[in-house]
Amino acid sequence: MSRVIKILGTGCPKCQSMTKVVQTVITENNIDASIEKVEDMMDIMKYNIMTTPSLVIDDAITIKGRVPSKDEILALLI
C-alpha cells in the first residue's frame, strides 16, 4: 500500500532538511510512498500544530518541530 507523506513547513531551512532526509530514506529502502510539501500557512494550520517542520504520514502527525534522524523515519514507515 502506498503511503502518503506530507511535510508541513513554510520553506525554512529545517523544513528543507526534513524533506531531504525523508526522500533519502524512501529511496534507500525502496518504500512505496509519495511526498507532498504543504507550504501554505492556512493549510498547515488545519493540522493543528504549532511548530514546523512537521511530518504527516497517512494523515497522522508523527513528528513536529524538529528534523528527525533517518532511523526514526524508517521506523515510522515500516
Binding site: 525554512c12 531551512p13 498547515i44 494550520m45 493543528n48 500544530i49 504549532m50 511548530t51 514546523t52 518541530g65
Partner: peptide
C-alpha cells in the same frame, strides 16, 4: 526559529 513564529502565533 523564525519559521515557527507564525504557526505559534496562530496556535
Amino acid at each position: 526559529c523564525s519559521c515557527s513564529s507564525v504557526p505559534l502565533f496562530i496556535g
